[in-house]
Amino acid sequence: MADATMETTRATPMVVPHQSVFLDKVKELLPEGGNLSMCLTCGLCSSGCPASGLHDMDPRKFLRLCALGQDEEITSTPWVWMCTMCQRCVYACPMAIDIPRLVYEVRASWPRETRPKGILGSCEQALKTEGNSAMGARSEDFQFVAEDILEEVKETQEGWDDLAVSFNRKGATYFLNQNSREPVTEPDEMVPLWKILHTVGADWTYSTVGWAAENYCMFLADDEAWETVVRNKAKAVDDLGCKYWLNTE
């Protein structure tokens, strides 16, 4: 009996540690290494993460697998598309470890054509349209719909004769963006916002360039496409000389 308890059990470890090529690569990208090697394994990240348990993964496990060099497992789990990169884990973490950034880099390591089709398609649409609309809305259609709805409001509702919507108006204070969902599927939802802006006397304009608020290229983890979209939007605001890029959210 005594001998048996002294004997060391040599079961196969669950994880055989390797030097993680992936972790080193990510650390190079992050300021101060993104604290990725400073995990205390406390589990605060996982206990407050809605994605914990999906596909047998959670933020702590994900980070530990990465720290132990299990590159194949972390770069193949679909869990990276089930974490929303909401940063609640960073907020809770005593070491402020940027796990969402790690998730982003793992997403980016997937061959582009294997990433979720819906996200890929939405990014492609944004790249194809001058308004960067993930729904592929053409700018002339956006402008037509907005002006059409405006006329309808003026005709059917009293007291809105002065309600105005402008496009590409230089020098406006606010460059207002708009989620594609409104002009495409629920244009009447734009009207309350116009009424509010009108009531306070805000000086605002829409643009036919870079007007769409959404950006799926970031979610696709495609740096090049993300940058292209942001550059297009930033240039559109500066070309009109607007002081603020105003988000409707």
Partner: peptide
Amino acid sequence: MYAVRVGLQKFGIKHNFEIESIIRLYA
């Protein structure tokens, strides 16, 4: 908004405007 705000920083895109949220303006 996050994609633009962080994208401007990440890619070092020079710009002359500020980012604003309508929520802050409502208030």
